[in-house]
């Protein structure tokens, strides 16, 4: 099946259960938003899918187009087509953005093939222009001393340069002012299409005004408790997460 499928995923860290029978299917071509209060397991889900080793997977499956990715190394999962835009991108001193993305692309090439530098820079500059990033940024060390907004733009730049089949965006809106939010959203919208699926994790409805999702899921206590169309985000915003807690705490 052409989808990112998570089935009955149970994950814990240091003996504490975080994801509880979590299931979600994102077909290619769709944008799904995952909303929920802090500490409900949204970021854990993102990291587990990307192959972070700190979490204990107890049961369940995660597949990309039918291929298992659970338990694979992070680079193998990346090659399989999953990209994670980090909530807190890491700083890599001395490694320029241009060299980093180039190395990441080179890692995807078959042995013996090399990157055409002229074409590479042309594409890089076009995408930076679209994200309203100064071209001088290519020479700056990756995320080193960047503002919150610069880091998030840089995540979206990497995402678009690496052309993944499935994008998981973890709280991309945090740390962004309204202008940056619009620019970043435009960048993401340009990438939308029938060949790509998105999981947009966010705490606030604000981002979803610009990246309008096909489906909104509400997560609470390690599982999805409610799903609906884009309007659900507005309802959630109006009623607040207390409403979620009151409505679903008893069933948890």
């Amino acid at each position: 099946m052409n989808a990112l499928e998570i089935k009955n995923l149970n994950v814990s860290i240091e003996g504490q259960s975080i994801l509880k029978d979590f299931s979600l299917t994102i077909p290619k071509g769709e944008v799904h938003a995952l909303m929920g209060p802090n500490g409900t397991g949204k970021s854990t889900l993102a990291k587990v899918m990307a192959g972070h080793e700190d979490y204990q997977v107890e049961s369940g499956t995660v597949t990309l187009d039918g291929e298992n990715i659970l338990g694979e190394e992070p680079d193998v999962i990346a090659h399989a087509g999953l990209f994670l835009a980090f909530q807190y991108p890491l700083e890599i001193p001395g490694v320029s953005i241009a060299n980093f993305i180039r190395a990441a692309r080179a890692a995807r090439l078959p042995n013996g093939e090399t990157i055409n530098a002229v074409e590479y820079y042309k594409e890089l500059y076009e995408k930076m222009d679209a994200l309203k990033m100064d071209r001088k940024f290519t020479a700056r060390s990756l995320n080193d001393g960047f503002s919150g907004g610069e880091k998030k733009r840089c995540e979206i730049l990497q995402m678009s340069m690496l052309d993944p089949a499935y994008c998981v965006m973890d709280e991309t809106d945090s740390g962004l002012d309204i202008d940056a939010l619009k620019t970043v959203s435009e960048g993401v919208n340009l990438m939308r299409g029938p060949e790509r699926g998105f999981l947009v994790i966010t705490h606030y409805q604000r981002l979803l005004d610009y990246i309008v999702p096909d489906v909104v899921h509400v997560m609470f206590d390690g599982r999805i408790v409610h799903s609906g169309p884009a309007e659900l985000a507005h309802e959630l915003e109006a009623k607040g997460y207390d409403w979620v807690k009151e409505s679903f705490a008893t069933t948890a």
Binding site: A50, E73, A78, Q158
Partner: peptide, 22 residues
């Protein structure tokens, strides 16, 4: 940092090498 770089598709060795070269 290694996890971040590996998420972009670099092997563990490539990631460390890049960090050191940086």
């Amino acid at each position: 940092q290694i996890f971040y770089m590996m998420q972009r598709g670099l092997s563990e060795g490539e990631a460390m090498s890049l960090a050191v070269n940086g």
